[in-house]
Write a protein that binds this DNA or RNA. Structure first.
Lengths: 200, 200
DNA sequence: CCTCCAGGTTAACGACCGCTAACCTCCCTG
DNA sequence: CAGGGAGGTTAGCGGTCGTTAACCTGGAGG
């Protein structure tokens, strides 16, 4: 099991800093020396923890996709286990989970739809499969709430709402944005409004 | 004036292919030899048309920002010239313009919010200033339509709707998306719905 | 017909980058 | 108290990349 409350592992430090740097300057724009410097070691010391630069990106992207999908499945199961919650409440739960992720792990959300093509074939296929499962899970919930939506329209709507929710990195002129709770609530309302408009 | 209906200039060919490649693989992920090959010349021949790789990116990003801002100003002037159109109609016009751009110049819309940090300081400041003017123009229109929105909230809402509208590149599993008109209309409805929900 | 330049070509340079090799140094363990 | 592995270090190799240099060529203009 992973150490969650302990002090962060070296590996975890490296992944966190790598995510930040990749998001800021792009995968090819960051050198291994910079990543090392960000955690206090220098250059090739990283190779004691990762097979290479590609492996860091792969672990980040797979981790993100798995985390999103796992969280969504858990929320869906909780709703179903609670004896048939209203479809709107399930959608609210999915939206809330996605917003939490987007606000708490901004660099990861940026990487998630930006550096996918830098992966080796096997990893890219895995990430895409996880992403597709995540999308299809949303599509099913949205169509249950708005049965008039065709499946392609629902899928487009879901992708568009992801674009809306993932826009938080662009609000990052630090100090100028409202508080976290207010931002989360605004994004949530807008996402619901967008779906409602799509389903009409 | 630029040649619009004539055969495209070499410069224009290069810019178009560079935009596509930068959007696909990132600025640092594309070599000058590839850009040259994409227009039938090879490698250093590009330096007869541009001062360097950076100059191509700069011209692309400045062009995008200017084009978006100019179009929005024109639409606003048309509305004001027509003797006070309803605020909702002005917002519709802005949304329509942005959607046209996002659907017709997908690679450019991708570059626009992804490779800004690769610019030299002067160019980056110019692009950011143009982008800010574009955002503020939207914010003013949105606040006229939804006066209860605070300015920070309106700005966040505008950025979020940009995220929604700019999500079109993610729908590009070619052949699977509905027709252009249908996509445009869906995006338009969702954007209006998101704004309406934000303003409540 | 000569000239000249716009727009190419190939060769090559210098910088950088990912990665490996070789070595060092704690610290934990038997 | 050996000793050995985990986790560093620096040096350096091989490849790639952006850019420059030097040269070539076809076609327009006097």
């Amino acid at each position: 099991m992973a150490t969650r409350t302990d002090a962060p592992t070296r590996r975890e430090q490296i992944l966190k800093e790598a995510a930040r740097l990749f998001a800021e300057r792009g995968f090819h724009g960051v050198g291994v020396d910079e990543i090392g410097a960000a955690v206090g070691i220098s250059g090739p010391g990283l190779y004691r923890h990762f097979a290479g630069k590609d492996a860091m990106l792969a672990e980040l992207l797979v981790g993100i996709s798995e985390s999103l999908l796992t969280g969504a499945k858990r929320r869906l199961a909780e709703a179903n286990g609670a004896g048939g919650v209203a479809p709107g409440a399930v959608l609210d739960s999915l939206i809330e989970g996605h917003i939490d992720f987007a606000l708490d792990d901004r660099p990861l959300i940026t990487l998630h739809d930006r550096e996918l093509d830098r992966l080796r074939d096997a990893d890219r296929k895995l990430v895409r499969q996880l992403q597709r499962q995540y999308v299809e899970l949303w599509v099913a919930v949205v169509r249950r709430l708005y049965p008039d939506l065709t499946e392609p329209a629902a899928r487009s709507a879901v992708h568009s709402v992801f674009g809306l929710l993932n826009s938080t990195p662009h609000l990052t002129r630090p100090g100028s944005l409202p508080d976290r709770a207010g931002t989360a609530e605004l994004l949530h309302r807008m996402a619901r409004g967008a779906f409602a408009a799509a389903g009409a």
